[in-house]
Design a protein around this nucleic acid. Sequence first.
DNA 1: CAAATTTCTTGACGACGGAAAAGAATCGTC
DNA 2: GACGATTCTTTTCCGTCGTCAAGAAATTTG
Lengths: 402, 402
Amino acid sequence: MTDSSISAHRETLLAAGPPAAVTMFTALLTRGTMTRGELGARTGFSAGAVTKALRPLIESGHVRELPEQWSPSGAGRPALPLQVDAERAYLVGVKITADEVIGVLTDLRLRVVDRHRVALPTIVEAGHHAHTVDADDALAAIVELVGRLVQDDPGRGDRLAGVGVAVSGDVDARAGLVRFSPLLGWRGISLAERLEAQLGIPTTVENDVRALTVAEQWFGVGLDTSFFALVTVGTGVGCGIVADGALLTGAHGVVGELGHLPVDPAGPECHCGGTGCVEALIGEAALLDRIAEAVDQPVRTIDHARALATESAAVRAIFADVGRVLGLALATVANLLGPEKIVLTGETMVAYDLFADDLTKSFEAQCFGAAQQCSITVRPLQFEHWARGAAAVAIARLVRAA
Amino acid sequence: MTDSSISAHRETLLAAGPPAAVTMFTALLTRGTMTRGELGARTGFSAGAVTKALRPLIESGHVRELPEQWSPSGAGRPALPLQVDAERAYLVGVKITADEVIGVLTDLRLRVVDRHRVALPTIVEAGHHAHTVDADDALAAIVELVGRLVQDDPGRGDRLAGVGVAVSGDVDARAGLVRFSPLLGWRGISLAERLEAQLGIPTTVENDVRALTVAEQWFGVGLDTSFFALVTVGTGVGCGIVADGALLTGAHGVVGELGHLPVDPAGPECHCGGTGCVEALIGEAALLDRIAEAVDQPVRTIDHARALATESAAVRAIFADVGRVLGLALATVANLLGPEKIVLTGETMVAYDLFADDLTKSFEAQCFGAAQQCSITVRPLQFEHWARGAAAVAIARLVRAA
DNA sequence: CAAATTTCTTGACGACGGAAAAGAATCGTC
DNA sequence: GACGATTCTTTTCCGTCGTCAAGAAATTTG
């Protein structure tokens, strides 16, 4: 099943080199075009070190000198702008959901070049209504997905440098192991190992929220701060944390379970066993249920719910409550961690305008002192962003393991 | 006012030296006696590096070789145990409260050698009942305290290597600045600088909870894990976090404000402006108020409250609620951060047995999945421990700045 | 007392990056 | 259109740090 056009001859992608080289390459990768001087200043290395570290990277073609003048500078020898050759390598990022695998092909700078989806055979367990995904089916689908992404254009196969997979649940990224994914019904699946065996390409597996956080760390707000949190609100409510420039992993794999913050002892029971959890109040299922009850008709999507809000004050009140609860959750993150920024994203954010005011009010009321200075960035999230996050993890691994 | 016996001639305390030397010295300091082989294995350096890094430290007397046989080993040249000369330097740790300054003198391994207290003149602001501490009074009291701690024994003055001060509130440790301390009524006090000017000794200032966390990081659970949280419950409810071996500081100075976790929308208003905060439910003031109301008599101390519990079921129920709320708070820390361990401490822990069961139950119910594996260590906290934490900060600074 | 064994030291070596001098490319100016 | 002046880049030399592997040291064992 492995596509022969893949992994024909993959060379050493990044000259491993001294720490300085990795630092500089990373800076150039994430921040784009820069002159040697800027690079040295940003990374804190001397001019000589820049020259030395860069030479092998330029010779191998991973970094290019642009002939064009960069700034319209005045006197003196003009500075040569440098940039990484982002098309030198491609990455595939995959998100596995309960009914399909979604993939994107990106370049080294995480720009999406192509995208595809492959449906998964749905297994409805006898009696139970829970979806479960067969791991072999998922593997086959991913292999097919990678094949398609690569075949769309010749030359991609040779340059495919890594595959990243994002899965919801408890993932041990170091081991490439899905410890437990309730959504997929998986327990102890050595996904990375098995995919690598089939694809012949270095493969990484990461929790989906953390993958999104890595994307943000390398190519988003992480460029401005080394201490931020990313909160997603959709099916679940999760949170990724970057502290001192490093992604928190959690001693036992659990981290950022913001969905199970107990905000109301009189609230509903949560599937986790707790009471009044954020997720049991504003997770997608709970939210749609609450709205369906209010309007006395089935509501299947956030978009539908959003539309109903224009007519129904009751629906608007429910969204207002989403804002209130989310504000408390964000305030908790701000109070407990004191990040510089919070990125708020997830499928539910398409309705952000319906609860923005209540969110802000509740956030500010609950924030303690200077924690309020924490800035909140809202990003709508399309589904393929999850896959893009997985690609970001693959890039991070490629650059660091270099 | 500066005591002349202090800082007569302080030498270079720790040979700055290469990173390896700092690492090894730190390992020896925190973990106690070790042979060269063990030291190399633990720090990951080669045997040769151990010899080279240690030589200057041994020559300067900071590290000693013990003549005694260590293990009853078999054949071969016997390994020489090494240890730091903990009495080579002394540290003073100070905790400033609303009505006194409490100080301890410790050796380099944070063993308390002596202790003292100096009362502060209480200023009751006209009309207001809020205590406020005059910064100059506090400075004078600290200078006096340091003087007394040093005078008790000759030779201490020469070896006093640092002073650490712990203050509740928002502290910028890097700048030695108390940004805002509601308890003391301070705003923007350059405490470290002013103390250094008066004492002539390197001085550090840190938030009290974080200071306690540093003590734990260097000489407590930090020896077994690089990822833990320390939760204090007393007047306030706070939390210090060590992730990847580094103390989190918070982008805006706020971090670990666990006291303002909103756990009950129907709960009392908190002084912070929030609703149903943990601190408004189980902070010392709130707790004593609740108990006083239940027994219809004034209750001033936790010990008193504790005694009342034997007679009154209502009081026991309140302690049970403390357990419930605290369990939720700890579960939140575990869910959000995924630390390997949590240290639970604070003045309220003298009554731990009254709420241990409810705490455990509530913690386990609210914990998500593997977060439950996080182990909880309970430590009763006497007041001088706060001062000892401040000394730990001074040690950390001494060793790292070395 | 030699052999075996384990620990510790030594010295050669290489990787890394800094400092500063030398070189390169451009603009202004005469 | 030479000649500085200026700014960027490379080169050379050097110091620091830590590894490696050989050998010295201090024991127990036979």
